[in-house]
Amino acid sequence: MVSLNHFLILSGVLFSIGTAGVFLRRNLITVLLSIEVMLNAVNLTFVAVGRYLGTVDGQIITFFVMTVAAAEAAIGLALVITLFRHRETLNPDAYTALKW
């Protein structure tokens, strides 16, 4: 029997995988993809808890998270393209102009 705990543990594991990706990868596009993994883990929590409580609010919040993720992807990828034009690399360590 699948219970709420199974879904919560699964989304915890997915969120940790996304966090590991943000920490470990040295590629701006993969970092953005890891953020998407984390957003999806949170979405799964919202839908599972909404199902547990018997309300549609979880699904509605998921809908808003998806819209914000779309906006974030558009802005983030535009920034990646602009940065790539300046340095010809996607390594986040290459952008140190503001560092002293």
């Binding site: 029997m1 699948v2 705990n5 919560l8 915890g12 969120f15 940790s16 966090t19 199902r51 547990y52």
Partner: peptide
């Protein structure tokens, strides 16, 4: 970074496994 994310995974799973089973209606 890798250690921190593994720690996060362990902590989340540990905290959630201490919950009682919550079955769906």
């Amino acid at each position: 970074g890798a250690g921190l994310s593994v720690l996060l995974a362990i902590e989340v799973v540990w905290a959630l496994s201490r919950l009682g089973e919550s079955h769906f209606g």
